[in-house]
Amino acid sequence: MSGNKITNWDDAYSNSAYIPGGDDYPAKWQAAAAAFRDEMRAAGRLREDIAYGSHPRNRYDLFLPKTEAKGLAVFVHGGYWMAFDKSAWSHLAAGPLAHGYAVAMPSYVLTPEARISDITRQIGAAINAAAREVEGPLHIAGHSAGGHLVSRMNTATSPLDRDVAARLRKTVSISGLHDLRPLLNTSMNETLRLDLAEARAESAALLEPLDGMDITCWVGANERPEFLRQNGLLANLWSSFKVEVSSVEEADRHHFDVIEGLADPDHRLVRTLLGV
C-alpha cells in the first residue's frame, strides 16, 4: 500500500498470511466440527444432508435443540465462494442451540462452477427450505463470503420468499464483503469470474435494503484494513433507510477466530444474533 491507496489488492484481501498459524485453522475447524456432529448424532439431534436443490452440494444439516425449537438460526460459511462446505462449521451451532434454537448449515455450489449470483439464489433456497422445517423467528449469520450472502438476503432483490423474509428478525454479517467491486482487481477473480455488472448487482452496499431489516456487521479489530472498511459500509450507506443497522469491531479478534463466539452461548456475538 502507498498511503491510503491500495496498490496490491491480492494482499488487501489476504488473511492467512497475516494470522499466526493461519494455515492450521481449517484442520482445527474440521476436527471440532466432526466431534460436535458425532455428539449430536448420538443424541438424535442431527438431521444430515437435507436437500434444498438438485445439485449434490445443495444440502444442509439441521441441528436440533433439546426441547421444541424457539425458532431457526442459519449459518452460512465463507471461503471466498471458492472453498469449504458445511462440514467444517458444525461446532458453531452450539451457542444458538443452548438458547433453544434449531440451527441450519448449508453447503452451496462453489465458483467457478457457479457464479456468485447463483450462490445467492442457492442460499435463498436453502433458507427457504430450512424455514419450512422449523417454525418461528429466523436469525441468520454468515462469515466472510457467507457474510456477504446473508447481507444480500436483506436487500430489495433478496431471493427469500416474502413470508420467510417477514420472519427474519436479525442478521449478523461477520467479516462480510458488502462491495464486491474491489475483487475485480484480485487474481482470485479468475475463479470468481465477476464482471462489473454482477459485482454491482451482488453488492449489498449498492442495493436498497428491505424495510424493517435489522443487521449488525461484525468484524475482528485485528483484521485486514479492507475488512474493517467493508464492515462499516452498510451502517454508512443504509442509515437513511427504514432499517436497523450497526457495526461492531471485536477487540483482539482476527479473521479466523472472530467466529468462535458463535460456539459460546454467553458470548456477545450469540446474544446479538438471537436478541437475548
Score class of each variant (00 low, 15 high):
Tyr25Trp: 13
Tyr25Ile: 03
Tyr25Glu: 07
Pro26His: 08
Pro26Ser: 06
Ala27Thr: 09
Ala27Ser: 15
Ala27Gly: 13
Lys28Thr: 12
Lys28Met: 10
Lys28Trp: 06
Trp29Leu: 00
Trp29Pro: 08
Trp29Asp: 02
Trp29Phe: 04
Trp29Val: 05
Gln30Pro: 03
Gln30Lys: 08
Ala31Phe: 04
Ala31Arg: 09
Ala32Ser: 10
Ala32Leu: 05
Ala32Asn: 09
Ala33Pro: 11
Ala33Asp: 11
Ala33Cys: 12
Ala34Pro: 10
Ala34His: 11
Ala35Asp: 15
Ala35Tyr: 07
Ala35Gly: 11
Phe36Asn: 08
Phe36His: 15
Phe36Lys: 08
Arg37Tyr: 11
Arg37Phe: 09
Arg37Lys: 13
Arg37Ala: 09
Asp38His: 13
Asp38Ser: 15
Glu39Val: 09
Glu39Thr: 15
Glu39Gln: 15
Glu39Phe: 01
Met40Ser: 12
Met40Asp: 09
Met40Arg: 13
Arg41Asn: 10
Arg41Cys: 07
Arg41Tyr: 02
Arg41His: 12
Arg41Leu: 11
Arg41Val: 04
Arg41Trp: 09
Arg41Phe: 00
Ala43Tyr: 06
Gly44Pro: 12
Gly44Leu: 05
Gly44Lys: 07
Gly44Phe: 05
Arg45Phe: 01
Arg45Ala: 04
Arg45Gln: 01
Arg45Lys: 08
Arg45Ile: 07
Leu46Gln: 08
Leu46Tyr: 07
Leu46Trp: 04
Arg47Ser: 10
Arg47Pro: 05
Arg47Val: 07
Arg47Cys: 07
Glu48Lys: 04
Glu48Phe: 01
Glu48Asp: 06
Asp49His: 03
Asp49Leu: 10
Ile50Asp: 09
Ile50Leu: 14
Ile50Thr: 08
Tyr52Cys: 12
Tyr52Asp: 14
Tyr52Thr: 12
Tyr52Ile: 13
Gly53Asp: 15
Gly53Met: 14
Gly53Tyr: 11
Gly53Pro: 15
Gly53Ile: 12
Ser54Gly: 13
Ser54Pro: 10
His55Val: 12
His55Ile: 11
Pro56Ile: 12
Pro56Gln: 13
Pro56Arg: 14
Pro56Ser: 13
Arg57Val: 13
Arg57Ala: 15
Arg57Leu: 15
Arg57Ile: 12
Asn58Gly: 14
Asn58Ile: 10
Arg59His: 09
Tyr60Ser: 11
Tyr60Gly: 08
Tyr60His: 14
Tyr60Asn: 10
Tyr60Arg: 11
Asp61Ser: 03
Asp61Phe: 04
Asp61Leu: 06
Leu62Gly: 01
Leu62His: 01
Leu62Gln: 04
Leu62Pro: 06
Leu64Thr: 01
Leu64Asn: 03
Leu64Ser: 01
Pro65Glu: 00
Lys66Phe: 04
Lys66Val: 02
Lys66Cys: 03
Lys66Gln: 02
Thr67Met: 01
Thr67Glu: 06
Thr67Pro: 00
Thr67Trp: 00
Glu68Met: 02
Glu68Thr: 10
Glu68His: 06
Ala69Asn: 09
Ala69His: 06
Lys70Cys: 02
Leu72Lys: 03
Leu72Gln: 00
Leu72Ala: 07
Leu72Thr: 06
Leu72Gly: 09
Ala73Ile: 00
Ala73Met: 03
Ala73Asn: 04
Val74Glu: 03
Val74Pro: 02
Val74His: 04
Val74Asp: 05
Val74Leu: 05
Phe75Cys: 05
Phe75Pro: 02
Phe75Gln: 06
Phe75Glu: 02
Val76Asn: 06
Val76Ile: 08
